[in-house]
Structures are given as structure tokens and as C-alpha cells.
């Protein structure tokens, strides 16, 4: 199989013959996809808020859309980083805000209420993905109050701390005596 990375290897260094399975789990890939989605949506909201408000019949809410864009971008960057779990939870919260904002536009006199309903449906679907990804990427650390293994016997000094310290003292005295005499 061809491996791109082999081209740049220094001459004589081992090259890949066959690659093993990736450590990345499907939930990590989902987090990544959601992170990029967040960035994309955020950029549209930030740079073209009128397109968004017009589609939803919510003209006048451009500032809110821009602010949401910033929020999406921040959550996107976080979801793509090592702190993806925090990013995904931020997205779940954001989905709630999106839904609330959309609901506020769902008035009987809004000619585009069909689009809003569609957007709400989408937010609902994405929220479910966000929630799942956030649940699945929870840090796998033991809980704070979990019983931990302690190592009170591992001083590393075969004869104990005191003996090691005394011996060190002797040696230092010897060394300094050697220098002055």
C-alpha cells in the first residue's frame, strides 16, 4: 500500500509497510465533524447575518446572529482541540439558545415560518448528535472521590529516607573537606 508519509522519510529510516488501526474512536471523528460544522456555521453567521435573518423572516436580529456566530466559532475551535468534551457541551448549550431564538421568531405573522420550523428540526437533530458526542467523549478519569491506590512504601531509598539523607550529609562533608584540605 502507498503511504504518503514514506516520501519524506530520511534515507534508511524505517518506512510504513502496513498501517495498524487508528487510535481515534468513531466518537472522536463525530466530535471533529461537529467541530468543523460549528466553525462553518459560525463564519456564515458572523459574516452574512442578513442571509440568515432573511431566510428565517427575522430581519432586525442581525446582531444576535453575529453574536451566535462568535459563539459557534468558539465552540468549534474547542471541539477540534484537546478539550473537545468542553466544546461539545458548549455546543449542546448553544443548541438550546438557537432553539429559543428560533421559537421567538415563530410568530403567526412571519411569512417564513416554514423555514423556521425546518431550522428547528435541524437544530433538534444536531442537538441529539452533540449530546451523544459529548456523552461519548467524557474524560475517562476516575471520579474525584474514587478510592485511589497510594504508595506510602515507595521511598525509592533501599535503606529508608533517614539513612539516605545521613549518607548524603556524610558525602557532602567529605567532599567539602577534600576541597579545603
Amino acid at each position: 500500500m502507498f503511504h504518503f508519509s514514506n516520501i519524506v522519510r530520511s534515507k534508511g529510516d524505517p518506512t510504513i509497510v502496513e498501517s495498524g488501526p487508528s487510535l481515534k474512536r468513531p466518537q472522536d471523528q463525530l466530535a471533529r465533524a461537529l467541530g468543523w460544522f460549528s466553525l462553518g456555521l459560525g463564519v456564515v453567521e458572523l459574516l452574512a447575518p442578513r442571509r440568515v435573518t432573511e431566510t428565517l423572516g427575522m430581519e432586525g436580529s442581525e446582531t444576535l446572529v453575529r453574536a451566535f456566530g462568535v459563539r459557534e466559532i468558539v465552540a468549534g475551535i474547542m471541539s477540534l482541540s484537546v478539550e473537545k468534551n468542553a466544546g461539545l457541551w458548549a455546543r449542546v448549550g448553544g443548541d438550546g439558545l438557537d432553539a429559543a431564538a428560533l421559537l421567538s421568531g415563530l410568530t403567526s405573522d412571519n411569512p417564513k415560518k416554514g423555514n423556521i420550523a425546518l431550522a428547528l428540526l435541524m437544530v433538534g437533530g444536531i442537538a441529539m448528535l452533540d449530546y451523544r458526542a459529548a456523552q461519548d467523549t467524557k474524560p475517562r478519569r476516575p471520579p474525584r472521590d474514587a478510592k485511589r491506590k497510594l504508595y506510602p512504601g515507595r521511598s525509592g531509598f533501599p535503606k529508608g529516607v533517614k539513612a539516605a539523607k545521613d549518607r548524603a550529609k556524610d558525602m557532602i562533608q567529605h567532599a567539602t573537606a577534600g576541597v579545603t584540605s
Partner: peptide, 24 residues
């Protein structure tokens, strides 16, 4: 031989790679 190979952020794989040889 087998080796642990870096493929990107949080992505280390156990790959089959060519054996090292004396170069110098």
C-alpha cells in the same frame, strides 16, 4: 517489524514498518 507510529493529534498506531539498517 512492529512500531508505534505517530499519525497526527491523538492518533498513534501500531504499524508494520521496515527494519532499521546500519547507515553509518
Amino acid at each position: 517489524m512492529k512500531a508505534l507510529v505517530w499519525h497526527g493529534k491523538e492518533d498513534i498506531r501500531c504499524d508494520t514498518v521496515t527494519d532499521p539498517e546500519i547507515q553509518d
